[in-house]
């Protein structure tokens, strides 16, 4: 079924959802949010795209295979835990660094954000793999 209304709305909603998912990912640092919901939000955007267009179009929009997303996400998440091992602390200890950027206060970034990014990518990958393979049936 091709719906012009849905397709037009998707153009706006898709970008908004992706942006909102990034917002959730970064907000998860100190407030409700985080990689998991953010990943679901992003996957929701792609699911909407699949409904408005079709599976092939979504795969093209995604550019990478969902499986690659899972692998990269898992590697990033586990890798963020490894960083602390190099410093001699136990696995997955949060390591923090500070960034001085113009126009901003001091910005703290650390391995938890890296971990969340890994979760984000993994969740997108897993959800899309399920949705796309079910939609292809």
């Amino acid at each position: 079924m091709i719906s012009l209304i849905l397709r037009t709305a998707t153009h706006f909603l898709f970008t908004i959802m992706l942006q909102f998912s990034l917002f959730l990912l970064l907000r998860g640092h100190n407030e409700p949010g985080g990689g998991f919901v953010a990943g679901l939000m992003a996957a929701g955007g792609f699911a909407l795209y699949t409904i408005a267009y079709d599976v092939a179009a979504t795969r093209q929009a995604l550019r990478v295979d969902p499986r690659t997303l899972i692998a990269v996400g898992l590697a990033i998440a586990a890798g963020s835990g490894l960083l602390s091992l190099m410093k001699g602390s136990p696995f997955m200890t949060g390591e923090w660094g500070h960034l001085r950027l113009p126009y901003l206060e001091r910005l703290n970034i650390g391995t938890p954000l890296l971990f969340d990014t890994g979760v984000y990518l993994t969740v997108i990958g897993v959800t899309l793999m399920i949705i796309l393979s079910l939609a292809e049936e």
């Binding site: 499986r67 690659t68 899972i70 692998a71 990269v72 898992l74 590697a75 586990a78």
Partner: peptide, 9 residues
């Protein structure tokens, strides 16, 4: 875990 990730890629 890393072997699985590597094999997944």
């Amino acid at each position: 875990f890393f072997a699985a990730v590597a094999a997944l890629t």
